[in-house]
Nucleic acid binder design. Structure first.
Lengths: 192, 192
DNA sequence: TCCATATGAGACATGAATGTCTCATCCTGG
DNA sequence: CCAGGATGAGACATTCATGTCTCATATGGA
């Protein structure tokens, strides 16, 4: 289990370290390796034994983020039911990961020079496919590309997460805000 | 004029320096003071004479971003015509500033510890007032708060800017993508 | 012409984060 | 009980961005 206490001299659980780092870096992206280590309850030396530097740590966090996204995509069962229903399930499933995703998004270190991790492309493709399915079924309008709808979903997730984190919005409204705006837009309708 | 050439030993235009810095930091947020100086065509010493450190430079950029936002709000004439028309004008007017805004958004240094610049609150309030006006006039739905619509606009601006910058979308579609999704949503309508 | 000013170039010190290392200590399995 | 392994604590050097300083030079005004 991942909630056990880690007293001193107990074997380190790399996954526990990663999640502690994610929780810390989510609201303090400039935290030092020492702070990350303290947040995980281990020493800086041990942290460095498991992750050979800040760069490796960020890369590991990226892999964790990709894994959580893929898990959310699986859990949302994007192929079942209407596309709208699938979008609603997706937003709900991905909500626990938005903090980590927001950190990774601002970590421009990941995009400097080298090509981005192929895992993100896979995720983009799966979400784009969902929107395309909705277009083919007649649910979604076709003048907005699936790629844009995907990016827009990311942006709305980030905005809603920011609202909740800054206290300007209630966590219970997170799902409703995103889905309603993404699917319905701001304009008032006479009747649907 | 702001497009003149700055040869050596010519008096420095602080505004030109700021805009060069904004252009550079927009696509390389970790640029050093030396790179910023070179991008502006001046020496690091002179840069430091005008902005006493990176912190001051970022603060100045924040002020510039606020000023550009306010100018966009003025140019968009949010009180005239329908709220939808005002939103369209706003997106068009703020488009040139999205790069700088994106940089400032990821510069979490601005929000660590101290209170955020009151200028942002003013801007938030003006945009929120626009959405509230649309709700009172019956144009916009009332189950989405003005605060959320404002944040959502920010998120969509950032997403669209990212798409354009990464080459996944055409600059000419910037305005259409944002306005159509924000106002109309993804769902297909029979007729409006 | 002459002087004040601003700039460019570069040296230098500082501070912070990082990477590396050693050593004592404590678990855990045999 | 003992040996191997992992950890915590801390010292140490390195790197890099930054802040500060000096000096030579060129510009522009008096």
């Amino acid at each position: 289990m991942s909630h056990m206490e880690y007293g001193r001299l107990m074997a380190v659980d790399p996954d526990h370290v990663l999640r502690s780092a994610a929780a810390l870096l989510t609201h303090k992206a400039t935290a030092t390796m020492d702070e990350v280590a303290k947040a995980a309850g281990i020493s800086r030396a041990t942290l460095h034994r498991h992750f050979a530097g800040r760069d490796a740590l960020v890369r590991a966090l990226e892999s964790l983020g990709i894994a959580e996204c893929e898990a959310a995509l699986d859990a949302a069962r994007l192929d079942e039911g209407t596309a709208s229903e699938a979008v609603r399930r997706l937003v709900g499933a991905i909500e626990p990961a938005v903090g980590l995703l927001g950190f990774l998004y601002t970590e421009n270190q990941l995009f400097e020079g080298e090509e981005q991790n192929a895992g993100w492309t896979l995720i983009d493709d799966r979400i784009s496919a969902l929107f395309r399915r909705g277009q083919l079924s007649g649910e979604f309008r076709i003048d907005l590309t699936p790629a844009w709808l995907t990016e827009a979903l990311y942006g709305l997730l980030a905005s809603a997460a920011w609202m909740v984190q800054s206290g300007k919005g209630a966590p219970k409204d997170f799902h409703y805000m995103i889905v309603e705006l993404l699917l319905g837009g701001a304009l008032r309708r006479e009747e649907s």
